[in-house]
């Protein structure tokens, strides 16, 4: 295993320490592994809290700041945080207007956040609403599975709903916007290589030099199927087609994110976006806001995912609103 780390067990603590040193605009609680805004939000505004396993950076810690999250709770690599951590963050960020939990749909995440909001409501009287992001079209038979995974739409949702919370909307309307955004987002991912979980010490799956995995998530889990390596133009089809088959993206402005899994360089991500953009345009889909880069990753996995979000004027306005976070920044 080749990684810039000290010990496998120390990765999260050491990385958070570096994150704190690099970003004075956030405050890191190293004991509870929570990233907060250095300057908390004004009282009376709904707070946004997210979190999950580590290894997806910049998600979630990189999205703490004006216009996006109020706090992010970090679990071990690929392991959702515990209820205690979430509860602590929930109590801290509540300004009295309640807290929205943004949870990616994984059994562990859902259970831990559920337990946390029960605790927070019981102990501290904090009003908590939860949105469960579930946008991965690679998971098809939702009835016979844990349901669709929460992947790329999480990033877009945290940005859009973060802007709404900044405007001072109440918890119910923030939560219903969040659900609307989730319903409008779809993602599909692929991998050229497996990632290596530090504590495991070797790649999660073996992938021959001439093969790729289609339909992967963000935890190094194998995908829906494996096939021969293909040119970028064909890979783009494998991402675009299942998304467009799942939801009609015509007739509305679309936010498109071509996301890298952590080990693929920008030159390749732009190239992939070029192929995707051609297919979308041919399918009559209008990309109003493109985003290309590493936004929700899977450690050092090489590969990419595509997320499309069917937007409208309100969502675009919220998307364009100022955001000042380490991972996403514009307008201020």
């Amino acid at each position: 295993m080749k990684k810039l780390i000290n010990t496998p067990d120390g990765v999260l603590a050491d990385s958070l320490a570096g994150y704190a040193a690099a970003h004075p605009e956030v405050r890191v609680d190293p004991v509870n592994r929570i990233v907060y805004r250095a300057t908390p939000k004004e009282a009376g505004k709904v707070a946004l809290l997210s979190g999950g396993g580590s290894g997806h950076e910049p998600l979630h810690g990189g999205y703490v700041g004006l216009g996006m999250l109020d706090a992010a709770v970090a679990g071990e690599v690929f392991t959702s945080p515990t209820p205690d951590q979430v509860q602590e963050a929930t109590k801290t960020v509540d300004t009295g207007a309640g807290v929205l939990h943004i949870v990616k749909n994984y059994t562990g995440d859902v259970m831990n956040f559920d337990m946390a909001s029960e605790l927070a409501a019981a102990e501290a009287g904090v009003q908590v609403e939860t949105v469960v992001v579930a946008d991965d079209v690679a998971v098809q038979d939702s009835l016979y599975t844990a349901g669709r995974r929460g992947v790329g739409t999480t990033v877009l949702l945290e940005k859009i709903v973060g802007a709404a919370a900044e405007e001072g909307r109440d918890l119910a309307s923030v939560a219903s916007l969040a659900r609307r955004v989730n319903d409008a987002g779809r993602s599909m991912g692929m991998a050229l290589t497996s990632c290596t979980v530090p504590a495991a010490g070797k790649p999660t799956f073996d992938l021959p030099d001439d093969q790729m995995e289609i339909g992967i998530g963000i935890h190094g889990e194998p995908g829906r199927h494996r096939q021969d390596l293909a040119p970028a133009s064909e890979i783009a089809q494998l991402l675009v087609e299942p998304i467009l088959a799942d939801l009609d993206f015509t007739g509305a402005p679309v936010i498109a994110m071509l996301n890298g899994m952590g080990g693929s360089p920008l030159i390749e991500l732009y190239l992939m976006y070029g192929e995707v953009a051609k297919l979308l345009s041919a399918a009559g889909v209008t990309v109003a806001r493109p985003l290309v880069g590493n936004y929700i990753t899977s450690l050092d996995m090489a590969g990419c995912s595509l997320t499309l979000l069917k937007a409208d004027d309100e969502i675009l306005k919220l998307w364009d609103a100022p955001v000042v976070t380490p991972g996403l920044r514009w307008g201020a």
Binding site: G53, G75, E76, T79, S80, P81, T82, P83, D84, Y106, T107, G108, M111, N112, M115
Partner: peptide, 12 residues
């Protein structure tokens, strides 16, 4: 276990 494991196995 609930406060140190996380994931699915922690709550379960």
């Amino acid at each position: 276990l609930v406060s140190t494991v996380g994931g699915a196995s922690g709550p379960l």
